[in-house]
């Protein structure tokens, strides 16, 4: 998982784990548009070494959509007139919070990467997610 065989370069893929234990294997390059994930994978954190990021605040349904967006972005990053990604209405508000949490903001477009300190931001939104999920029982069933 850590390296891809012969050399010591990190694996092309990383694993994102949701609160309910679903694991998503994502192309590292695609996931790096999120400043939050980028921050987690930098330096000598456990996440950076194992390539495995736990998101105890994000449910599997939402993380699945976020992962879908990562690949949607990666596939269309050089294209013009990209069609909208399909998002069910009932997920939109949680995805808004998730977009805020992952830093997938409009100010950030594919050609730009920002160096921001995300740690404090992550903390704030962890609390937000916690509140959101405890308050309302979200009627999802997966798997």
């Amino acid at each position: 998982m850590l390296t891809n065989g012969h050399d010591n370069s990190p694996s092309k893929y990383i694993t994102l784990v949701s609160s309910d234990g679903f694991e998503f294997v994502v192309l590292r390059e695609a996931a790096m548009i999120s400043p939050t994930i980028k921050g987690m994978l930098r330096g000598q954190f456990a996440e950076a070494i194992t390539g495995r990021c736990q998101f105890p605040e994000v449910s599997g349904v939402i993380l699945e959509k976020v992962v879908e967006y990562f690949h949607f972005w990666y596939k269309n990053r050089d294209k013009e007139d990209v069609p909208d990604m399909d998002i069910p209405v009932e997920l939109c508000l949680e995805l808004l919070v998730a977009a805020d949490y992952f830093g997938l903001d409009s100010k950030l477009l594919p050609t730009t990467f920002y160096k921001t300190t995300q740690e404090s931001v992550v903390l704030t939104f962890s609390l937000a997610f916690f509140a959101l999920q405890n308050k309302h029982e979200i009627p999802y069933s997966m798997g």
């Binding site: 976020v66 294209k79 990604m85 995805l95």
Partner: peptide, 15 residues
Amino acid sequence: RRGPPSLFEVALRAA
């Protein structure tokens, strides 16, 4: 003009 809109924007449009 290239590239998809942000997830925030996509979610807003869905909303």
